[in-house]
Write a protein that binds this DNA or RNA. Sequence first.
DNA 1: ATATCTATAAAGAACTATTCTCATTAAAGA
DNA 2: TCTTTAATGAGAATAGTTCTTTATAGATAT
Lengths: 144, 144
Amino acid sequence: MIVQKRLDEILAKLRQRDFRITPQRIAIIKTLLQSEDHPGVEQVYAEVKVNFPTTSLATVYKTVNLLKELGEILEIGFTGGCNRYDGNKPYPHPHLICTRCSKIVDPEVRLLEQMSAELAKATGYRIDSHQVEFFGVCAACQKS
Amino acid sequence: MIVQKRLDEILAKLRQRDFRITPQRIAIIKTLLQSEDHPGVEQVYAEVKVNFPTTSLATVYKTVNLLKELGEILEIGFTGGCNRYDGNKPYPHPHLICTRCSKIVDPEVRLLEQMSAELAKATGYRIDSHQVEFFGVCAACQKS
DNA sequence: ATATCTATAAAGAACTATTCTCATTAAAGA
DNA sequence: TCTTTAATGAGAATAGTTCTTTATAGATAT
């Protein structure tokens, strides 16, 4: 399936840069690729420990950072909370975050390219990246 | 001047909600209102200590959080660094951040309202707030 | 003006997320 | 298989932030 394909790509990239392929790393990458819910490090750790009980939290942190540097996962920064990660869409994209249940959704946004272009033109900045987060209350939480 | 006016407004709001007006608080608010460069807590602390040397860092944190809750300053969340604050435009607005010199600019952005409205319609979320940051290299840094 | 009451400030301890250290283990190429 | 060297694991360290305790400052009533 699609996860296997990306896993192979990431492993190839690791090999190519002389990083070692370890069972822990594979487990961490798989967890990140399979999860739909933008997990935090702690959540990945819990998942990985099911099959590799001796894995340490530091290893998860280090691997997550490595993957971030390789551009294979996206970090979603949370002030005053733990960061969360998106292993499915590793490029910058907007998020819609429910402030009640912490659910994160990836909405379709049309206007971002245009906005970025206008901004660059108006300010003289070269824009490399962005972090666009919308906060609100999801449909389910609005009912309660 | 304009700073005095906003200071009075904030003080009135504090009084109205039975928060006390203390010299430390006034100093912290003034620092936030006067600064143009989106200072962090540590920077505010340094500034306030000039006139009130006994002020503690915790006091600055508490006051900053209080002001944030009152909606009088805007928090700009930074992953892996310290948060910074905008005392001049307390409502959510986009930032353009130079990744070389850390300069922060408040650009004009037209499309955000529209984007937010489309998003709410498409997802069913009630959108309350946003955090929109663009990262790049400012004109000055591009030359070096 | 004074006494009393109450919320705050101050200081540092505590907490949480993350990174570092280093001895030990194990991956990958010879 | 052997060797080299990077990765792991466990806990200590760190940084940013929040909590706790206690004396004090500000408000209130007299």
